[in-house]
Write a protein that binds this DNA or RNA. Sequence first.
DNA 1: TATATACGGAACTGAGACGTTCCGAAACCA
DNA 2: TGGTTTCGGAACGTCTCAGTTCCGTATATA
Lengths: 223, 223
Amino acid sequence: MTQLDLPAEAEAAEATTAPRLGRKRDHSRDPEILDAAIEVLAETGYEGMTVEMVAARAKAGKATLYRRWPSKAELVLDAVACMKRGDVEAPLPDTGTLRGDLVALIKPRSIAEAEKKLQIMAGLASMLSRSPELADTAYATLVEPRANLNRMLFQRAVDRGEITGEHDLETLAVVSAAMASYRLMLLRKPVDREFLLSIIDGVILPALGLPAGEAATDGPTQG
Amino acid sequence: MTQLDLPAEAEAAEATTAPRLGRKRDHSRDPEILDAAIEVLAETGYEGMTVEMVAARAKAGKATLYRRWPSKAELVLDAVACMKRGDVEAPLPDTGTLRGDLVALIKPRSIAEAEKKLQIMAGLASMLSRSPELADTAYATLVEPRANLNRMLFQRAVDRGEITGEHDLETLAVVSAAMASYRLMLLRKPVDREFLLSIIDGVILPALGLPAGEAATDGPTQG
DNA sequence: TATATACGGAACTGAGACGTTCCGAAACCA
DNA sequence: TGGTTTCGGAACGTCTCAGTTCCGTATATA
């Protein structure tokens, strides 16, 4: 159902002719449509979002969407599934301390990205209990990557002897995500750098028995 | 708009005659309708809930609901606003330690209650950005009380010298609620005693520099 | 240039839900 | 008991939106 595993017929047709040129045709507009779906989803939520909104945003006809996806639900599912890009997990430099690693993740770019992911998750919330498949996909795309990042940083801290393995790292790995989603979805306050620092210095590091750098490492805010 | 501040006419009529007897009449059915609204809201969310569902659950006619509330939105707002009962904050015994106080709050009764509140909050999620009034009401009814409880227990611990005031108590006071909502709404896993204990012993107490009692104080689970 | 395909756009259908209106029944009051 | 009021229930109007159909058009191939 993903744009990556095309049905045999379409794949054959595309393989023989490969017409992706000029301006637009075949299935090359799928990414734009899926992007539009994600945007509208984040802005209005699943219930508030209409197929016509998505079509208008993508400058496409509603019929075009239904030629490619059988229903709104499957369109959204596909949009979430195809959202893996944007995960800038490439750099992830080792700063030498856990706090440095955690703070290094707080960049305007990644904040905005995380905020958007949470908005999407919030928009999906009402559907999660109705569609286990969507719940699994959303978890794998929106939640898991961030938790894995924290797990990785914790493991790195364990390896360098900064902390011991007897902490509840599994729970601590999701504290920041939980606090951020709580603040954004329920409290409706901004998830900014100051807030994220208060999570690191007020919860995670103290819980690990590490000192919370007050005004240290607060310099480079490169985005 | 709340059932507590009745319009002058109705209040006068009820004050002079006070007919609440026999079986039903006047506005005495309001609480049942509001309860039904809360139940349906928690089960299906705001978008999935229909006025007919609420009427059927309350064994009332749809017209009766519209005689009392001008719209679905105001019905839900009133239902959330009138939900203050159920907050069993009366006992709150001082166990002598912060951990004892926190663990004492983990009773099947209050777990179920908190879980229901989170379900309601989840069902309201999509509306919060659209109606600031609902957001404020929901916050005051569903979120604030629990955070205040934790703040109170923290202050008690400060007073008895168990912890110092230099911790980020404001952030720590909402950690449990954030983790619970995250687990329930996004992860869709049960918020049980074991999970809540892992929050206390794995996050809150370590962050406060207090020992996490392993198998201590685990006895009386009276609900 | 002629043909075929796929697209954008608009009109259409049907279902579901908000909100209204009406009516018979039941309970209160005198 | 008779009048009044409110209730439950059902039917109705209206609107929104999912999903479909149709058509003019633009592009790619020959």
